[in-house]
Simulated scan of single mutants.
Amino acid sequence: MAERPTTSWREGIAREAEQLAAGTLDPGCACMADLYPDELLVATDTVLDSFDEEVAGLDGAEDVQVFAAVERVVLALNAVDDIHCGYETDEREALCDYIDKALTENGIDVVALAARHGLGRYELTDKWRDW
């Protein structure tokens, strides 16, 4: 199963907290908890929970249904980013990669889907993505 970006973000927060507790990290260099506040993590996971549920039933779906699911997840992530301003370049790439992998793991040939619509594989989210 594709690893959610929020999982690695939480792991980074935990690693940094351990380093701070051990005294191996200067507190002035600690940034993970500020970059990924709990509200952002919870909101992102809520959106991805809905997306995961939806894509679980997409195997064999028409392209329009797949694109509708992608549109919904992207618009919901736009709303999260509007509130929390949490998605920078690395986060954007991780979220797009997660969407691609979740679709692939649920039987969607992302390369073929994109090609049928004149898109590159990593352009599925571009039409709706603000982050």
Rank of each mutant, 00 (worst) to 15 (best):
V80W: 14
Y87E: 01
G86W: 05
D45C: 10
L119G: 00
T6F: 00
E105D: 15
R121Y: 04
E105C: 15
G118W: 00
V70I: 12
R116A: 08
V42M: 01
D130K: 14
A61P: 01
D26K: 11
L58Y: 05
A17V: 04
A22T: 01
D97C: 09
A102T: 03
A17C: 01
H117Y: 13
A56W: 02
A21E: 02
L48F: 06
E54M: 10
G57W: 05
C29E: 15
L77R: 09
K127G: 09
R121M: 04
V110Q: 01
W131P: 00
M32H: 12
D82P: 08
Y87P: 01
A114Q: 06
H84M: 06
R15W: 13
A112H: 02
G23K: 01
D130E: 10
T104V: 12
E91A: 03
D26F: 05
A2M: 04
E53T: 13
V80G: 09
L119Y: 06
C31S: 15
A17G: 00
L20S: 02
D100T: 03
E39M: 06
A79H: 07
G60Y: 12
D49K: 07
D34S: 12
Y87Q: 02
T6N: 08
T125V: 12
K101D: 10
E3M: 13
Y122D: 11
D38G: 15
V80R: 14
D82L: 15
A22K: 02
I13A: 06
V110R: 03
V74F: 02
R92M: 07
A112Q: 05
Y122E: 10
D82C: 14
P27I: 08
N106H: 02
T7C: 03
A43I: 03
E16Y: 10
V80Y: 14
V70H: 04
D34V: 14
V70N: 07
I13L: 11
E3R: 15
G86L: 12
E18K: 15
G28K: 04
Y122N: 13
H84T: 10
A22D: 03
E93C: 12
A33C: 06
D109M: 09
R92G: 06
A102F: 08
T44L: 08
W9Q: 14
M32Y: 07
R15K: 13
L95R: 05
D49V: 10
V74M: 03
D38H: 15
E16C: 03
L113H: 10
L119P: 00
M1P: 07
A61R: 01
